[in-house]
Amino acid sequence: MALRRKRRKFGSTMGWTLGWIATALVLFSLADMVGTIILKGVASFRWNMLWTVTSGEAGGLENAILGTFELIIISIILAGPLGVLGGIFTSEFASKPVAKTIRFLTEVLSGVPSIVIGYFGYLLMVLQWGWGFSPIAGGIALTIIMLPYILRNTEASLQQVPLSLREAAWGLGMTRFQAVYKVIWRPAAGGMATGILMAIAIGMGETAPLLYTAGWSSLNPTWQLTHHQLGYLTYIVWTYIDMPYTASHQLAYSAAFVLLVIVLVINIAVRALVTRPSLRR
């Protein structure tokens, strides 16, 4: 008996030890990744990169940063309303089976590989519609990436609003629309904002959907929407690390650094504000 008890205890300790080792491994890869990029980034980042454009083998990041912002603005203008309104419909108006179908298909859309979305954009918008590599094609490709996140977050945060609040609003004689825009959206606003911010972070980090839609340009973007290639940060990381020059590598590190800092700040801020333990459940 004593031997058996010892064996079981040993098994338990072993199991949990493996658990802690796995957790440590995950945290270590995160730390190593963030640490490496930040160290390399700080060592190679120059402030004047922010106001010079990319040229040949090095230069700055101005065009890429502005281009990334332009793409994000276009895609959020499209994906924001679509996602929020879609989420409202799924949560407030749709019958149960319809809501379930929308939810399912939204999940499926978010599972489509981003390169397929990019290539689709190339086939339809760049070639068929003849827009050429352009901000609007890239923006629409990003829209498709972002839409599921915004829609799902909006819907989930609306579902958290208690039914009694709706009943009170309807009891006052409000139509469903009035109930949504005067009452129900208020407690859910934080969740919706979270969805949009997370979608921005995801969109900033995407490369694959843009390769075939936005093209690349070392000039600063203008607001011309079609037939005008534009640069973006992730492209610099991808191409300049492959060049044989130190200056190009430094530019790639700096671009990755800028990108990582923005994305991490958004991520940490959102999660820290929204999922604080005291506010959970």
Partner: peptide
């Protein structure tokens, strides 16, 4: 957070 890191950064 690990899930939020852009894939080019992971590739780098």
């Amino acid at each position: 957070l690990l899930a939020g890191i852009p894939s080019v950064v992971i590739g780098l």
